[in-house]
Simulated scan of single mutants.
Amino acid sequence: MPRLTPPAITPGTVSGSVQPVLHAEGLHLRPWRARDADAVVAAYADPGIRRWHDRSMDHHEAAAWVASWADRWRAETGAGWAIATTDAVLGQISLRSFDHGDGRSDISYWVLPAARGRGVATTALATLSTWAFGALGLHRIEVDHSVDNPASCLVATRAGFRLEGTKRGDALHADGWHDMHLHARVAGDVS
Score class of each variant (00 low, 15 high):
Leu182Arg: 07
Leu136Ala: 08
Ala174Thr: 06
Val41Leu: 12
Glu76Pro: 08
Glu25Phe: 05
Leu136Lys: 04
Trp32Ala: 00
Pro20Thr: 05
Ser146Cys: 08
Ala174Met: 04
Ser152Met: 10
Gly91Thr: 02
Gly117Phe: 02
His100Ile: 06
Arg3His: 14
Ser94Glu: 15
Ala45His: 14
Asp58Lys: 02
Asp58Thr: 05
Trp177Val: 08
Ala88Phe: 10
Phe133Gln: 09
Asp71His: 11
Ile107Trp: 05
Arg3Cys: 02
Ser56Asp: 10
Ala114His: 03
Arg51Tyr: 13
Asp71Val: 03
Cys153Tyr: 14
Ser15Lys: 11
Arg162Asp: 01
Arg35Gly: 10
Val21Lys: 08
Ala174Phe: 08
Ser97Gln: 14
Leu22Arg: 14
Thr86Arg: 15
Val66Glu: 07
Tyr109Gly: 06
Trp52Met: 09
Ile9Ala: 02
Trp131His: 14
Gly119Thr: 02
Ser94Phe: 07
Ser191Asn: 12
Ala75Cys: 06
Ala43Thr: 05
Val111His: 04
His181Leu: 06
Leu138His: 13
Val66Pro: 12
Gly176Arg: 05
Arg140Leu: 14
Ala124Cys: 14
Arg96Val: 10
Val147Tyr: 07
Pro47Gly: 08
Ala184Cys: 10
Gly12Cys: 04
Ser146Asp: 14
Arg140Asp: 08
Ala115Tyr: 03
Gly117Lys: 00
Ala37His: 02
Arg35Leu: 03
Ala34His: 10
Val89Pro: 15
Ala171Cys: 08
Ile83Gly: 11
Gly103Ala: 12
Gly80Thr: 01
